[in-house]
Amino acid sequence: MSTKTLTATTDVITFRKQSPFKRAGSELLKYSALFFITFIFAFPLFWMVTSALKSDPQIYTLPPIWIPIPAHFYNFMDGWTRLDFTTMAINSVFRYTIPVVLGTVLSSTFVAYGFAKVKWPGRDAVFFICMLTMMLPWQVTMVPLFITFKNLGWINSYRPLVVPSFFGSAYFIFLLRQFFKSIPEELSDAARIDGASELGILIRIILPLARPALAVVALFTFIWSWNNYLGPLIYINQDHLFPLALGIQRLNRIATSMGTSGNAYPHLMAVSTIIALPIIIAFFLAQRTFIEGISLTGIKG
């Protein structure tokens, strides 16, 4: 597959010298490679959605049914009510995602301004330390943090996951600092001459200009907390506090034990679809923000 891909692209670069026949051939090769790759990437999620619309016998039929007729839309309702997913969705949104997004955006903006726009002795050395913390695997701090939060009585609450976000995230501090640095110094200097304080400059001048960068931070933080599995796994073990990510695993256990009965797998796929949907919708609504965010900073989603 890979060699095919290579010839396809390289041929195209030199297509001007080729005969129209050969050119059409390389175009064909290029698009077949593209569609093949796209098919592989799209297939698992496509399969998730179609399986969510099947009933038990359809889902195991050979050869596989690609598009089920009739589509069983009630799987979404039945799967959702199989466990208390409504409570889990409320937990995911209000106890976890929204507080974490707020905390990260607020604190990282604040800190990034201190690193980007205020001149103070020792700033670059401290910023370097901030960047170094990105190298630290979370496993190193995991055990002592767990012990600390346990002693504070924070197990089975969202505080261990939410509170640290109010103290800035090194990735986003870096991202916002780069963005703030690209805002001309003259703007802040003019405001300083007019008697504005640093806080006033941040709020009135920098923030309105930094909206696209803040959107990137909010978007990626939303995805990270919505998708996070390990954090809740460590800190939350009471069912009524579960976020969606833990609930889906519980449903998987039910499906594994029930196998081909009771529409367990269609339900699992239906709930997976519902949980993945906000991310996919967010991507289509903010595709540019995503692509610019990743390509600017190299942050992985």
């Binding site: 999620l45 998730m48 998708n227 796929m269 997976s272 679809t273 991310i279 995503f290 992985k300």
Partner: peptide, 11 residues
């Protein structure tokens, strides 16, 4: 790469 890892693991 951005879909929840739990969902893609289920699939």
């Amino acid at each position: 790469s951005i879909v929840p890892a739990v969902c893609s693991a289920m699939v």
